[in-house]
C-alpha cells in the first residue's frame, strides 16, 4: 500500500516540472505540453485524495478537468497556428510586437 503523501509528493514534483517548463522552454508547443502536464499533476492529486477520502467526487472532477484541458488544447493550438502564420516562428521570445 502506497501512502497518500507519496502520491502528493509525486504530483507536486510533476506540477513543478510543468511550471518550470512553461517558464523556460522556448517553443510554444512544448509550453502547451507543460501546461497539460500541470493539469495532469492536478488530476493525480484529485485521484489520490479521492481514494484516500473514500469519496468519488475527486474522480468525477478529473473527467471535468480532462474535458476542459481538451478544449484548452484545441484553442491553444489554433492560436499557435494563427501566430505562426504571422511570424513563421514558435519562439515566445520573438513575440515583440507588443512590449512584453
Amino acid at each position: 500500500m502506497i501512502a497518500l503523501h507519496n502520491y502528493l509528493i509525486l504530483s507536486a514534483v510533476i506540477f513543478s516540472i510543468g511550471v518550470i517548463g512553461v517558464l523556460i522552454r522556448r517553443n510554444l508547443i512544448v509550453v502547451l505540453m507543460s501546461i497539460e502536464l500541470m493539469l495532469n499533476a492536478v488530476n493525480l492529486t484529485f485521484i489520490a485524495f479521492s481514494r484516500y477520502l473514500g469519496s468519488t467526487d475527486g474522480q468525477v472532477i478529473v473527467f471535468f478537468v480532462m474535458a476542459v484541458a481538451a478544449a484548452e488544447a484545441v484553442i491553444g493550438l489554433a492560436i499557435i497556428i494563427s501566430v505562426y502564420r504571422h511570424r513563421q516562428s514558435l519562439d515566445p521570445q520573438e513575440m515583440q510586437l507588443l512590449k512584453w
Binding site: I35, M38, L39, E72, M95
Partner: peptide, 23 residues
Amino acid sequence: GRSSEAAMKYFLMGAFATGFLLY
C-alpha cells in the same frame, strides 16, 4: 499580428493561472 500575439500571451498566462487555481 498584434491581435494574434495578444491572444497567445493571454492564452499562455490564462492556462498557466488555471493550473495554479486547479491545484
